[in-house]
Design a protein around this nucleic acid. Structure first.
Length: 513
RNA sequence: GGCCGGGUACCCAAGUGGCCUAAGGGAACGGAUUGCAAAUCCGUGAUUCGCGGGUUCAAAUCCCGCCCCGGCCUCCA
């Protein structure tokens, strides 16, 4: 089995991946998932899908991956001026947005949700997230249907979080500030800053300027972060030894990872913005509570996604959710490939053009698979034949992924194999083995099984209209009435429908711009 | 200001000292196919790697300087 080499944020070096498991079989993997106060956008999904590619690569290599991804249903704060726990709760903001949508009739049919109940809002967006994630082939979300524990909600782990805070207080790593808030004492953990490269001195002078002076006065050190905030007026609150309130936002991952995977895990992933403070704080909490030297052995961070060469933002009009693109008729496969095809440690540039490129590519692979399926039907694997293009390509494919998840090179291996297979050199290989090799490649890329646009409202109407026009066009063509046939084709094009005349008849598809 | 990642053809994107006169895909162009198209298939495509120096027998790859883009420095994937 080839060894996977990964860049570990913790050491900033390329390392051989070796799991903690003595037998070298089981891998424990925790991924930071979405906060469900709105629909996830494609930047969120790049991070989640890269984690998925890592998980699938581990599985290709024969590991058994225990993967957990949280769905954060605690709102936390929105106010930049008071990021230590003040400001308005994001769930409250989402509630207002939903109330607006309700009033203006923009809420999807059949959804009748109470905008004043944060738990209901969170479940509403969580369900939408799971739907998008499953379309995109996020394995942990697909698995969640049978194993609900794999995508835990922090609101169901408040007891564990409180226990963690109690342990930190007991061990002298946390204290109650003058304001009654429980803070983590960063000076009590000498390795604080190891992940992000920050030092406590630099943080003291930090240019973030988001923390008010009076707030700082309650803490021993400016970098001390909140573990529990008593606040009986808060939208989401729970009883605790420090009064009714809510947990600090770093706490949930430490508590749930320990509860579901163990106090020391192999892998932890997230977007690059999570490195500091989120993951830095998780490490401090987890290690101080457990006494272990490590929380996660390897830290995997995906860089941010740009859109059409710019930072994605709502005001620039280049902000997309997965649902936006599905509604345009884009296939989940194309979106998935566009989001995973460039290296996870560089900013990738999402473009509509790129999405179309990916679609073309996937269609060619689908054709290869179709050809192999036809040839393999009813056949047995023939060991006497030498390896065909896909079997040979699988070695390159795997090696590319082992090289710090070089997906671009892995994709090239599929293309090269598909090209050889289509030519005369591909003849003579065993189709059963070839098909198996291509499916192994797809077990990581995850595109061939989701290469169809999602059905949308109005599809049935359109289909009926198109079929009627095609019947007329067929008659015109049989009569060699080319002007009439072309006129009907123009009408179809006007309906955003492309016509394909093949040897076995005419097919059509929606045009995606 | 501190720390970190990046700039390769029209676009996306591999390559980190000789196998690079730079992988793979898309667009474009030429051909096959087609009533004409679309789709598909075949072919063509950077003597050059942000800019300027340097090291070396040899540099896209190493060193120095500069320009540009992006991230973090208590919302964020």
């Amino acid at each position: 089995m080839p060894v996977l080499r990964l860049t570990n944020t913790l050491t900033r070096t390329l390392e051989d991946f070796r799991p903690i498991d003595q037998k070298g079989k089981v891998v424990t993997f925790y991924s930071c998932g979405p906060t469900v106060y709105d629909d996830a956008h494609i930047g969120n999904f790049r991070s989640f899908l890269n984690a998925d590619v890592l998980r699938r690569t581990l599985e290709l290599l024969g590991y058994e991956v225990r993967h957990v991804m949280n769905i954060t249903d605690v709102g936390h704060m929105t106010d930049d001026e008071d990021a230590d726990g003040g400001g308005e709760d994001k769930m409250a903001v989402a509630g207002r947005r939903i109330a607006e949508a309700k009033k203006s009739g923009k809420l999807p049919a059949g959804s009748d949700i109470d905008p004043s109940n944060p738990f209901v809002i969170a479940e509403f967006y969580a369900a939408r997230f799971l739907e998008d994630a499953r379309h995109l082939g996020l394995k942990v979300a697909i698995e969640e249907a049978a194993k609900p524990g794999s995508m835990p909600r922090p609101t169901r782990y408040v007891r564990e979080m409180i226990a963690l805070v109690e342990r930190l207080v007991a061990r002298g790593h946390a204290y109650v500030g003058k304001d009654g808030v429980v803070y983590f004492d960063v000076k009590s953990y000498e390795k604080y800053g190891a992940l992000s490269g920050n030092t406590l001195d630099q943080l003291r002078e930090g240019a973030g300027e988001r923390i008010s002076a009076e707030h700082q006065a309650n803490k021993k050190h400016p970098a001390d972060f909140m573990l529990w905030k008593p606040d009986p007026s808060h939208l989401m609150k729970w009883d605790s030894p420090w009064g009714a309130g809510y947990p600090g936002w770093h706490l949930e991952c430490s508590a749930m990872a320990a509860a579901l995977l163990g106090e020391e895990i192999d892998l932890h992933s997230g977007g690059e913005d999570n490195i500091f403070p989120h993951h830095e704080c998780e490490i401090a909490q987890s290690c101080c509570a457990s006494g272990h030297a490590f929380f996660a052995r390897y830290w995997f961070h995906t860089r941010h996604l740009m859109v059409e060469g710019m930072k994605m933002s709502k005001s620039k009009g280049n902000f997309f959710t997965a649902r936006d693109l599905f509604a345009e008729g884009r296939t989940p496969a194309a979106l998935r490939l566009e989001l995973i095809r460039s290296h996870y440690r560089i900013n990738s540039n999402f473009t509509k053009q790129g999405l179309a490129d990916c679609q073309t590519q996937i269609n060619r692979w689908a054709k290869s698979l179709e050809t192999l399926e036809a040839a393999a039907r009813g056949a047995e694997a023939d060991r006497s034949k030498s390896a065909g293009p896909f079997e040979r390509g699988l070695a390159d494919f795997t090696e590319a992924l082992c090289d710090d998840l070089n997906v671009a090179r892995a994709i090239a291996a599929v293309n090269v194999a598909a090209g050889v297979a289509a030519g005369s050199d591909g003849a003579g290989a065993c189709p059963v083995r070839e098909r198996a090799a291509l499916l192994s490649m797809n077990s990581v890329l995850g595109v061939l099984d989701r290469n169809v646009p999602l059905a949308s409202a109005g599809d049935a109407d359109l289909a009926a209209k198109v079929e009627a026009l095609l019947v007329r066009r067929k008659a015109a063509r049989e009569a060699k009435n080319w002007p009439e046939s072309d006129k009907i084709r123009d009408e179809l094009n006007a309906l955003q429908v492309a016509v394909k005349d093949g040897p076995t008849g005419t097919t059509w598809s929606k045009i995606v711009k």
